[in-house]
Amino acid sequence: MVIIEQFINGLNLGSIYALMALGYTMVYGIAKMLNFAHGDIIMVGAYTISVATTNLGLSPILSVLLSMLVCTVLGVVIEKVAYKPLRMASPLTVLITAIGVSYLLQSVALLIFGSKSQRVASVINVAPVTIGGITLTGESIVTLGVTIVIMILLVLFINKTKVGKAMLAVSEDRGAAELMGINVNNTISLTFAIGSFLAAVAGALFVSSYGFVDPYTGALPGIKAFVAAVLGGIGSVPGAMLGGILLGIIESLSKAYISTQLSDAIVFGVLILVLLFKPSGLLGKQRVTKV
């Protein structure tokens, strides 16, 4: 029974990683950049919920909506101000800028809220369910449900709508997409908006499960979500989902059965092993370099 509960914990954590990994992977697929500030958007989302529920006294649903709005706008603004002027720059320049943005968000949060971690009341108000001796918390149920719904919607959006297909086209070949009349700049902005929206959802689920937020809340989950995206094959949407879920399960099981402190090492070790045998991740496309 315990192993099943740990497995469900893993699914819960993995869903959050998967939602974050989607943001990394979509931005990477389209803008070819690692958005290191993505983890900190989750922190912003979590603080927004905290302020909205405690200071403004909004209802949980309204505060989640507000946090989605704030994160989406923030993501687009960051893209316009910091990343857009760097379209032609080297990947390393963009990476350093993203790291700068991440530091910026953390230090602004530090200035406003201080370094002490704040308790945040869960925005999820669902009673726990017991099935055959296994207790599912309300948070787990909602997290799993929300993640499944979002993933289905995202896959439909990318494959069925015109804008989604434009995103696919840009990630395949930016130049050719532009020649076909796709507005590349708008598509990239939209990708950032979707990624940040998903980050807001992940942030809401994260604070509901863990109940606290501090300026560095997003840093380590951000790196792990990034690992999940690479594990699944960066640039691949199903890969990010698979990588996130796998990572969450591995982390949760190794915490329960091996060692709490070594769980991070195990997670990173799995990544290295996978990349040794599949250098472009589990579902990534192998790109052949031509002269």
Partner: peptide
């Protein structure tokens, strides 16, 4: 030897992972 088979961002994430593994092992 294993990491340098990878390129670009993959190499970056693998070296990052190695750094974190070394840190966790030292702590333990």
């Amino acid at each position: 030897v294993p990491a340098l088979r990878l390129k670009g961002d993959y190499l970056a994430i693998v070296t990052l992972a190695f750094g974190e593994i070394i840190k966790s092992v030292i702590i333990n």
